[in-house]
């Protein structure tokens, strides 16, 4: 069984349209990735909505800096 973290990293890599082998670490600042741009940002929002049924608006998203921070925000908001 994949952990939430492993699953999230897979979804995140896919939303970025990044190479399969791209290493993604929790402490990475995702805005520094070469793939990151305004279109990938939309894909990530769409992915979080489809996979976790969570919508993070622009104001809150701006405050998030790392991959781990994003996963934490999703974890907090997941409807149980």
């Amino acid at each position: 069984m994949q952990t939430m973290m492993e699953k999230f990293i897979d979804h995140f890599r896919e939303a970025l349209d990044a190479a399969e082998g791209k290493e993604i670490k929790m402490e990475d600042r995702f805005r520094d990735y070469e793939e990151w741009d305004s279109l990938r940002y939309l894909s990530v929002i769409a992915m979080i909505d489809s996979e976790y049924d969570v919508i993070i608006d622009t104001t809150d998203f701006r405050k998030i800096e790392t991959v781990g921070g994003l996963m934490e925000e999703i974890r907090k908001r997941i409807k149980t």
Binding site: S38, Y41, L42, I45, A46, I55, I56, D57, T58, F61
Partner: peptide, 12 residues
């Protein structure tokens, strides 16, 4: 246009 905000609005 704030593309991110419009996107969040449009899918909600």
């Amino acid at each position: 246009m704030d593309g991110g905000a419009v996107f969040v609005f449009s899918i909600t």
